[in-house]
């Protein structure tokens, strides 16, 4: 069983799914994989999403409890090879609500990846702190956060299934359960039939889906995606973007996504944080009040086009500086 549109033969019909279809898909998946029990029922998250993030005002005290990620006055620096210290990120604060899809967008090399790595506990900040579920992030939190890396970080000597299993292996999940859950996750991204292939034998798009499956298998509430489509061609990006949004909408996860593609940002996000060039600061927060589920139709709609144009203006001016 696949989460993606079961009958849709091509991209076109894949995009035309209605809200009800999305909800049905969720319900069916819940039957198929009882192990996928997140805190909140996924379908309610879908409903919350479709009512639009515009309905929820930002950062009021009453929303404190639903904030799963809180970034406070974060600064990141690194030492260049000539010994000079460079500020990559400077005084960044924001928070992410449960089930929200937030995109970080900015000029290349602006420190987006550093920011994400600090949130994932992979990099120590120079100042400020990150809280995940009200716990200060001091290191990787594999039970709360799953990561999809820019270059997929697949293990070439492991088959697709073993590549997914490693996430569970490191949590000492017993072999039988590991195997079952890995196959479920592969099934979810449509890779069940190539479970025994090595990454080298998979196309770029399949490798990317494999990386997503590995992030999904551990049932983390938070996904951090670092330019997951960066290495792919335009068509594959488009198709995967559609698939990813459907998958994630129904999985009800909180997502922070790094990209430099404007279209992708508008298409996927509830909220877009536009970052400035080094040192990276939040230049502007752009809400995306487009209804879900989305397809290129929404992105091409006047509202979508307006948002994309606004992002372009912000980033274009930024790149000129």
């Amino acid at each position: 069983m696949s989460l993606f549109h079961p009958t849709g033969p091509r991209v076109g019909s894949l995009l035309s799914g209605s809200i009800r279809q999305a909800a049905m898909t969720v319900a069916r998946r819940d039957h198929g994989t009882p192990s996928e029990s997140d805190g909140a029922p996924a379908s309610t998250v879908v409903e919350a999403r479709t009512s639009g993030p515009s309905a929820a005002p930002s950062l009021g005290p009453s929303f404190r409890s639903s904030e799963v990620i809180r970034v406070e006055h974060l600064a990141v620096s690194y030492r260049r090879s000539d010994g000079a210290e460079v500020r990559a990120v400077e005084d960044v604060s924001f928070s992410v609500r449960e089930g929200e899809f937030v995109t970080l967008i900015g000029p290349s090399g602006c420190g987006k990846t550093s920011l994400l790595r600090v949130m994932g506990g992979l990099l120590r900040p120079a100042a400020g702190q990150v809280y995940v579920n009200d716990v200060l992030v001091k290191g990787p939190m594999p039970d709360a956060i799953a990561y999809v890396f820019q270059d997929f970080a697949l293990f070439p000597w492991r088959t697709a299934r073993a590549n997914v299993e490693i996430a569970l292996q490191l949590k000492r999940v017993p072999r039988g359960e590991r195997r079952r859950r890995a196959l479920d996750a592969l099934d979810m991204v449509g890779l069940a039939e190539v479970a025994d292939r090595f990454p080298r034998e998979l196309s770029g798009g399949m490798q990317q889906r494999l990386a997503v499956a590995r992030a999904l298998v551990s049932n983390c509430g938070i996904l951090l995606l670092d330019e997951p489509f960066g290495a792919l061609d335009e068509q594959t990006r488009l198709v995967l973007g559609v698939q990813l949004s459907q998958l994630l909408e129904s999985a009800g996860r909180t997502i922070v996504f790094v990209t430099h593609s404007l279209q992708e940002a508008v298409f996927l996000s509830d909220r877009i944080l536009v970052l400035s060039h080094q040192p990276c600061r939040i230049k502007k927060t752009v809400e995306v009040p487009l209804p879900r589920p989305r397809g290129p139709d929404q992105v091409k709609s006047p509202a979508g086009q307006r948002i994309e144009a606004e992002l372009f203006q912000l980033l274009y001016r930024e790149s000129l500086v």
Binding site: S2, D196, G205
Partner: peptide
């Protein structure tokens, strides 16, 4: 139930090397 291949290249890979 599974998704159709997204591109020709992917279709090729999915049919891919036969297991011996």
């Amino acid at each position: 139930m599974r998704i159709r291949p997204a591109s020709l290249a992917e279709a090729y890979v999915e049919v891919g090397p036969v297991r011996r």
